[in-house]
Design a protein around this nucleic acid. Structure first.
Lengths: 340, 340
DNA sequence: GTGAAAGCGCTAACAG
DNA sequence: CTGTTAGCGCTTTCAC
């Protein structure tokens, strides 16, 4: 390579070493925590770093250490819709903020079809990232299956059905949240409480139904639940069905705010006043809950906390500070509004 | 370094070279497009690559080439709200998809406060990324100022006020879109058309007003416009003001769907039927436009196209295939619904 | 504690 | 067209 001209070359660790009057190795030690380095030397090195405006070259560090310093947020084929979810942006924001504290970067990876998903699988397993955060999977996620086998440090958002034991995950405590919501309805004097659930092939759908069942008692739950699919339309249909099946229904727990919006419509059509005739509780504490008429009593999920936890666990997994898979249940909070 | 045991080492370019019976350099050439390599050799190398399950080590490549292979999506301090915007997810999705075609990764970077913004600035200018996509800035964006000076390949989403000439950007053609919308109103026989604009310190706000003015004629525009701030409330107030100032108003062009929702309310309160008394056109073609009563005639922005263009331009900028700053105006499309 | 030196895996210039 | 070779900047033993 030709002699470098007078062009402004980025300072390297070598430059810092020279300026501080130490060896390259010592500078490296300082850069990586400064253990086994005398305080005065450390100070000298640090001041050289700042005065030279030095900043480490990630690529070189990665190559030498075998670590990439980045983490993938994996959105698989089936989760395209997540992009339309306002929470997605929040996750990205929190993830990248928390990862930065660990000195890592967030790389958003998506697979929009089967072909890309294969490509993504190769990419992730080829050592391009130190770990991955996996967006809310549902049953039969092929990519998850594959990653699970490779041993790549991995934290799943939500409980991965079928891998509850073998993988690490951070999830909302759906069961407890639903239990609390339904118990609250009961505490309001409601005794004939029905539910519109989420899809029962998702852990959220299942968990919330389980909480409902525990609260009303198993005997009571027969015929008082209808499965929805998170959409407003399914909430409307579900509530319609329920209110006609059980005209004396006085409480309704709906698996999501959006579905609850639909349910509200159906109940109104059936001539029910909310909350006088039927008290309604939603789930998510989304914007929709506030916009609803009447505003929805609902379950707040603290996505923030869940996201922070996920990154924390992943970091420890990557650093080898944790032994087996970790499971974190993040608590929820009931938000009282006018619908119940 | 100790002798590697029998552990499954990732194959390197060297292994591929040996398997294919060529030199490392040749493999590298094949990996990088295969120019100046005989087809048969190329085939041999490629088959070695697949049979060995080889995939390139980014870190090593980055170190050797001085390129990082990644691009930052910069969300500065002032754009936190973007995370709540459903379009954000779309941008991320499209950006990462398009970048992958260029062999690049998307890194989402955020600065949540001034301190972090400084940190981010250092990060970006320290050569960690090959280029950056900058989210819709508004006036006086300090980070943009800084990046503009460093010469980092950069494409801005939206017209950066103050840097229209010096930076590359991809934006909606607001002026033309507004012109089309207002001309459409005129074509419907409306002759007393008012407007509620977006904030006039944004290029979108300004551009849409300019289009309105060109369509109605400069003389006409005096007193027929009120500035809003993109919120529903500001749309309501604006329309309220206008309808009382000009009781004979028969057309209203609103700078965003959300503001239009508010405007609809105000007009109804003032006893106006839509579109009989006042025809209303919004902007964005958002979900709100469809949900409105009546559904809004509005301007569709093709975020998809804008995002694709931004990545294309950035890629060329990084590759040095382009000389000066590039400016792309993405056309829009008027979507007719019942409000006008 | 600190220095010296051996790579990490790849690209790119240079011969031929 | 292809092989050879010199680094890219850093981490990490291994001595001292």
């Amino acid at each position: 390579m030709a002699v470098q001209g007078t062009g402004p070359r980025r300072p390297t660790i070598e430059d810092v070493a020279r300026a501080a009057g130490v060896s390259r190795g010592t500078v490296s030690r300082v850069l990586n925590g400064g253990s086994h380095v005398r305080p005065e030397v450390m100070a000298r090195v640090n001041s050289a770093v700042t005065s030279l405006g030095y900043s480490v070259n990630q690529a070189a560090r990665n190559l030498a250490s075998g670590k990439t310093g980045s983490v993938a947020y994996v959105i698989s084929e089936h989760h395209e819709h997540l992009f339309g979810d306002p929470n997605f942006g929040n996750f990205v924001r929190i993830f990248s903020r928390e990862l930065r504290k660990q000195g890592r970067h967030l790389i958003v990876t998506t697979a929009q079809d089967y072909e890309e998903e294969k490509f993504l699988g190769e990419y992730l397993t080829a050592g391009h990232v130190d770990g991955a955060l996996f967006a809310l999977p549902h049953e039969g996620e092929a990519l998850l299956e594959r990653l699970a086998r490779t041993g790549l440090p991995l934290v799943v958002q939500g409980q991965p059905v079928g891998y509850e034991e073998s993988l690490s995950w951070v999830a909302i405590d759906d069961e407890a949240a639903a239990f609390e919501a339904v118990t609250y309805l009961a505490g309001q004097g409601r005794s004939r409480i029905a539910t519109v659930t989420g899809p029962l092939n998702t852990s959220s759908g299942r968990g919330r139904l389980a909480g409902y069942r525990r609260a009303v008692g198993l005997g009571r739950s027969r015929g008082w639940s209808v499965e929805g699919d998170w959409t407003m339309g399914s909430g409307r249909r579900g509530a319609h069905q329920l209110v006609h099946r059980h005209p004396d229904m006085d409480g309704l727990f709906v698996g999501s705010d959006l579905m609850a919006l639909g349910a509200l419509e159906a109940l109104r059509e059936a001539g029910r006043d909310i909350p006088e005739h039927v008290a309604v509780v939603g789930f998510d504490d989304s914007a929709a809950a506030l916009a609803a008429d009447p505003p929805l009593t609902t379950v707040n999920q603290s996505f923030e906390k869940a996201a922070v936890e996920a990154v924390r666990v992943l970091g420890q997994l990557i650093d080898g500070a944790l032994s087996g898979p970790q499971h974190v249940l993040v608590p929820t909070r009931l938000v009282r509004r006018r619908s119940a």
